[in-house]
């Protein structure tokens, strides 16, 4: 962990009084201005413009900037069943995805932390899915979870059949109620290694003597984990939830590649609906409204985190 460096980074606020005009300071600012302008335009300007579009009547190929007030939002929340369902799907996805990643990641990290032989090998295996794209993950898992037909099972269902575990067969991403869990499975495969890495780094940062002392006092391993290790891992949990949370709130690639998006499909999420309604249905204003709603969700997660992080830095 590099928390030590963080504190060095922002130790100063308005520094000592400048004695004389310093051209280098100007150069420094000039060097960073292009980036600031780019972010101002491409992030804040564009968000503002999307926000404006969401208040218009643009519902054809060409822009129609007539004012429509909050009608697009009202429609989405009051009348648009597909949107509401996609929010629900996304919420389910987020809860199960984060829960499973945290649980599995912690379990893997705790076991690996026992300093077993071949730790490096296992770590490499658990982490490699991070390196591939959600599109590859989606294509492969659609093949694995393809349920096949009643007569001819495929993918993992076939494996269950061959292993005599036929009762485990399931419709996976075709299940209207819980199909989203099949998408969660693929996402967890990709991201659980990340939480493992975070937890492992966190565990390694906890001084051994702390836990050793507790063990000497007669605490069981479970008690040590629960009362000492986990509380110390809390900042890691927060960071991880934020990172996984913002990935899951804007998930699009995975559902696209698994072909589980679309009206009344279990994997329909706002990110996918936004794309479809904008570029297939030509409902640009409605698509913009969905995008802004997604942004608000992500912002409520991220802004408090950013504020607390940088406030802590500034105080340090």
């Amino acid at each position: 962990m590099e928390s030590a460096s963080e504190t060095v980074a922002t130790r100063t606020s308005p520094a000592r009084p400048r004695r004389r005009f310093n051209p280098d300071r100007l150069i420094a600012i000039a060097m960073i201005i292009p980036s600031i302008v780019a972010i101002a335009v491409f992030v804040y300007g564009f968000i503002g413009w999307t926000g404006f579009i969401s208040l218009t009547k643009w519902a054809d190929l060409l822009p129609d900037y007539r004012w429509n007030g909050l009608e697009n939002y009202r429609r989405l929340f009051m009348d648009d069943e597909r949107f509401q369902q996609s929010l629900l799907n996304n919420a389910l996805f987020t809860v199960f995805f984060i829960g499973a990643c945290l649980g599995l990641g912690l379990l893997l990290a705790v076991v690996l932390d026992r300093k077993l032989r071949a730790e490096g090998l296992f770590r490499t295996i658990f982490l490699f899915p991070m390196a591939v794209s959600f599109i590859v993950t989606g294509v492969v898992w659609r093949w694995i979870l393809n349920p096949g037909t009643a007569n001819q099972a495929q993918g993992v269902n076939l494996l269950f059949d061959q292993m005599g575990l036929g009762f485990l067969k399931w419709d996976w991403f075709l299940d209207n109620q819980w199909g989203i869990l099949a998408v969660v499975l693929a996402a967890v495969w990709q991201m659980a290694g990340y939480t493992m890495a975070m937890f492992l780094a966190g565990l390694r940062a906890i001084p051994d003597d702390l836990r050793e002392a507790a063990r000497v006092d007669g605490a069981t391993e479970g008690q040590v984990l629960w009362h000492i290790t986990l509380p110390l891992l809390k900042p890691i949990v927060v960071s991880t939830v934020i990172i996984l949370g913002h990935i899951s709130l804007k998930i699009f690639d995975l559902t696209s590649a698994m072909k589980v998006g679309g009206a009344a499909k279990p994997g329909d999420v706002p990110g996918f609906y936004m794309y479809e309604t904008t570029f297939r249905g030509n409902y640009f204003a409605r698509g913009a409204a969905i995008a802004i709603i997604m942004l608000v969700f992500v912002a409520t997660l991220i802004i408090p985190y950013l504020i607390s992080t940088f406030r802590a830095e500034a105080e340090a």
């Binding site: 999307t50 794309y275 995008a291 997604m294």
Partner: peptide, 10 residues
């Protein structure tokens, strides 16, 4: 962190 959907059309 922003969802890129929110900048796509602009």
């Amino acid at each position: 962190f922003i969802p890129y959907q929110s900048v796509l059309v602009p």
